[in-house]
Computed example of a mutant assay.
Amino acid sequence: MVMVGIDGSDAGARAAAYASGLARRQGARLVVVFVAVPSLWIAVANPALVLAQEETFRELTAEARRQVRRGADELGLSVTFVCRRGDPCTQLGRVADKVRADLVVVGADGGRWRRWLPGSMVNRLVRAARWPVVVVP
């Protein structure tokens, strides 16, 4: 089973395209994980904005689900869509463990050098080393 993490970014879209093609060629199931990162600053600065953030999260999730379904139908793939909220590395790791992923695909998070900084999501995910990780630029 191939698992891919998406977040609405171009890098996430490239990772999804790569994972979809790989799953199709291998005849594997694809699990697409959408992770939204809530802003703690919004809750601190203006608690009333938490409702707006929640609505935005729901809209982004619905749009991601529609895009995943459309792509799965076009490619004839068996896809499971999972939505999580929180730290991307932690959430992707939890889902990968739960679904027993054979491979985790993610997009590069940021510029060429940022992804290799000690605290970057990609670096932390690769260092977890419980599954092979493919980083799509």
Rank of each mutant, 00 (worst) to 15 (best):
L49I: 10
D10I: 08
L60T: 14
R25H: 15
G27L: 02
A62L: 15
A11K: 11
V50N: 00
V33N: 06
E59A: 14
V31L: 02
N46Y: 01
V37C: 02
T61F: 14
A45G: 01
W41A: 10
A16D: 01
G12C: 04
E55P: 02
E63D: 11
A43L: 05
V35E: 06
R29Q: 14
E63W: 05
A36M: 13
G12F: 01
Q53W: 00
G8K: 03
V33T: 08
L60E: 08
A62T: 15
A16M: 08
N46K: 04
R14V: 12
T61D: 11
A45K: 03
R25T: 15
R58F: 02
N46P: 02
R58K: 08
L51V: 09
G8H: 04
W41K: 15
Y18N: 08
F57L: 14
V32Y: 07
V37R: 15
A19G: 04
A15Q: 04
F34P: 05
R29T: 10
L60W: 11
R14I: 08
A45I: 06
E59H: 10
P38I: 07
A52G: 10
A45L: 05
A45Y: 07
S9E: 06
A11P: 01
F57R: 15
A16F: 15
A43N: 09
G27H: 04
T56M: 13
A48F: 12
G12E: 02
V32G: 12
A45R: 05
L40A: 12
G21S: 03
A23W: 00
P47V: 09
Q26R: 12
A36F: 07
L30N: 03
P47I: 05
A15I: 04
A15S: 03
A36L: 14
A23R: 04
P47D: 06
F57G: 08
A11T: 14
A28P: 08
A23N: 00
P38K: 08
T61S: 10
R14L: 14
S20D: 10
G27S: 01
R14H: 10
A11M: 14
P47E: 12
G12I: 00
E59F: 13
Q26K: 14
V31N: 06
I42V: 15
R24P: 03
A23K: 02
W41F: 11
E59G: 10
L40V: 11
G21Y: 00
D10R: 02
A16C: 05
A16G: 07
R29N: 14
A62S: 14
L40M: 10
F34S: 11
Y18W: 07
A19D: 03
G8V: 05
E54T: 00
F57E: 13
E54L: 03
A17V: 04
A45S: 13
T61G: 12
L30Y: 09
P47H: 11
V31I: 08
S20M: 07
R14T: 11
A43Q: 07
I42S: 10
E63S: 10
